[in-house]
Simulated assay, not measured.
Amino acid sequence: MKNIAELAQLIARHAPGNGIFPTGMPRLSVIRSDRTSTPTPAVYEASLCLIAQGSKRVSLGNDSVVYDASRYLIVSLDLPLVGDILEASAGAPYLCCKIDFDQAALADLLMTESGGLPKPGLPVLAAYPGDPDLIDAACRLVRLLDRPETIPALAPLIEREVLYRLLTGPHGPMLRHVAASGSHLNQVSRAIAAIRRRFDTRLRIDEIAAEAGMSSSALHAHFKSVTRMTPLEYQKQLRLQEARRLMLTGSANAASAGFVVGYESPSQFSREYRRLFGAPPRQDIERIQTDAGYQIAV
């Protein structure tokens, strides 16, 4: 537990208030909340999430996973999840670090391996018992924030170590399948990337399928099997979350946010926004701005 205690101290130092805080490393974020939260939908990037204090539940469709300081979470590819913080208080805030996967480094690590590809047999979203080596690597990564000049040289090495430990851990077979060219999971991952690149334009299934190397019917079947959504539903969630972000940052108001992310009908935007977030755009933003713990997504 010594390393977990250190990780909690490091996160608390670099997350000065409630919220999700980007850092000087593009794939590292630190998160803090001094209160529990309501279930909130969000698209989680492929990542490792390590809680140092508190607990969280995330759900993919009807499947839920609870993780805390004794269990780490792996999100194998960008997934539409619903998350809520279960344990947090002012005296013992929820503290978490999120390390997004460097896909190029992951592919490079896999090139050094030989042998056939094992069957995945694992969920794309899973929690596993805490690994002291992973926690130690996370501590060393977050500690670099105290010496920013060391980040360019050392951060890639530590991130690579994290990926290596995940590949040699219990979730390794699933990560190999996601990264393996030609696997259904890799094809779905490519489709997700294509949708995210142009989420604010009209979705053309045949083009997405071609980029993923699948037929349109196969894309629908495998995409929904993995994400519990159709490609169109996934795009809709991306649009609504981007609209929410724009309103929160002041980049757009409720009247224009829908147009910015690709909606042509304000009434359709408001209706779908309310269905996803539980309130109309303006009311939802006011709720978030008066409740500092509401927007915690990871």
Rank of each mutant, 00 (worst) to 15 (best):
N3F: 11
E6V: 01
A8R: 06
Q9P: 04
Q9H: 12
L10H: 07
P16A: 15
P16C: 04
P16H: 14
N18W: 06
G19N: 08
I20H: 13
T23F: 08
R27P: 06
P39V: 13
P39G: 12
A42E: 06
C49M: 10
C49S: 14
I51S: 14
V58M: 03
G61H: 10
Y67N: 11
Y72V: 09
L73Q: 00
V75Y: 04
L79Y: 09
P80S: 02
V82E: 15
D84L: 06
A90E: 15
C97K: 02
K98P: 00
I99T: 07
F101E: 07
A104R: 13
A107M: 08
L109E: 08
E113R: 14
G115Y: 00
G115N: 01
L117D: 07
K119M: 11
V124L: 13
L125K: 01
D131E: 12
L134F: 04
C139N: 15
L141T: 10
P148V: 09
I151D: 08
P156F: 03
L157P: 06
I158T: 07
I158H: 09
E159A: 12
L166D: 08
L167C: 05
T168V: 09
S183H: 00
L185T: 06
Q187E: 00
A193P: 03
A193Y: 00
A193F: 03
T201D: 10
L203C: 02
D206S: 11
D206N: 12
E207R: 01
I208T: 14
A210E: 14
S215E: 10
S215W: 10
S216F: 02
A218T: 13
L219S: 10
H220E: 13
H220D: 12
F223M: 01
F223P: 05
S225P: 06
M229H: 12
P231S: 06
P231V: 09
L232A: 15
E233K: 11
Q235W: 04
Q241Y: 06
R244W: 03
R245D: 05
G250P: 08
S251P: 00
A252G: 01
A252C: 00
S256M: 13
F259W: 05
G262K: 07
S265L: 04
R271A: 14
Y273W: 00
R274W: 09
R282P: 10
E286K: 09
Y294G: 08
Y294L: 15
Q295Y: 08
